[in-house]
């Protein structure tokens, strides 16, 4: 595919992605922070729904031979260390590398700082990678290992089974914690504010 066609495709797919992130309220730092504090679960619900859908889609695409999986290599040390640093950064920023763009699009100004910080993070990694980070990155390397190879079950079967477990969990989670209450009256992941005698800013609904 030409670069130009790839860019057009990326823009179109990104617009759908961004709309889903905004409507799912992942553009709210509060939604990310509440999830990491385990008080409300909108992020986990959207995340697991995307994973379950992806499992079903990929079970069909690979099962009928339309596509091949492209899993990332298993690098134990890099996955643990990098994953942990990523998690801390997500909490401090209140955003993920993808959702920060949805924050910018919805209008939050601090998200521009998050994005620029992210560019410098990528640059720092690029300069450090060949020297400082290589030993860490390659420790505990197992290649492109996937769970279906490990347990010896065909990918489509295992993927559909795993998707069913996730869907069952989500049905339970929605029962104990309904999503509308978690999103809040202003759709920002914050609980309803008590109306302090008309002191709320215009446009902010009280409980």
């Amino acid at each position: 595919m030409s670069v130009f066609a790839a860019i057009l495709l990326g823009l179109a797919m990104g617009a759908v992605f961004g709309m889903a992130l905004e409507k799912g309220r992942m553009c709210e730092g509060g939604v990310i922070l509440c999830q990491m504090q385990m008080s409300r679960h909108a992020m986990l619900k959207m995340f697991l729904s995307a994973v379950a859908t992806g499992l079903i889609v990929l079970a069909i695409l690979t099962g009928f031979g339309f596509a091949k999986l492209s899993p990332k290599a298993t690098l134990f040390a890099a996955d643990v260390v990098g994953g942990a640093i990523l998690g801390v950064g997500i909490v401090i920023a209140g955003a993920c590398p993808g959702t920060v763009l949805a924050q910018i699009g919805s209008g939050y100004r601090d998200a521009i700082y998050t994005f620029v910080g992210g560019l410098f993070g990528a640059l720092a990694f690029t300069y450090l990678e060949p020297n400082l980070l290589k030993p860490v990155l390659t420790a505990g390397s197992y290649g492109k290992l996937t769970l279906d190879q490990l347990v010896g079950v065909p990918f489509p079967a295992l993927a559909l089974g795993f998707a069913a477990i996730i869907i069952g969990f989500l049905v339970w989670l929605e029962k104990v914690s309904p999503w509308r209450a978690e999103i809040g009256p202003n759709a920002d992941g914050m609980p309803a504010l008590a109306d302090a005698g008309g002191l709320l800013p215009p446009g902010v609904k009280s409980a």
Binding site: V81, G82, G83, A84, I85, L86, G87, V88, G89, I90, V91, I92, A93, G94, A95, C96, P97, V100, Y113, T114, F115, V116, G117, G118, L119, F120, G121, A122, A124, F125
Partner: peptide, 9 residues
């Protein structure tokens, strides 16, 4: 946060 997040990623 943005720096740490992408560096870790």
């Amino acid at each position: 946060g943005g720096f740490i997040m992408v560096f870790g990623a």
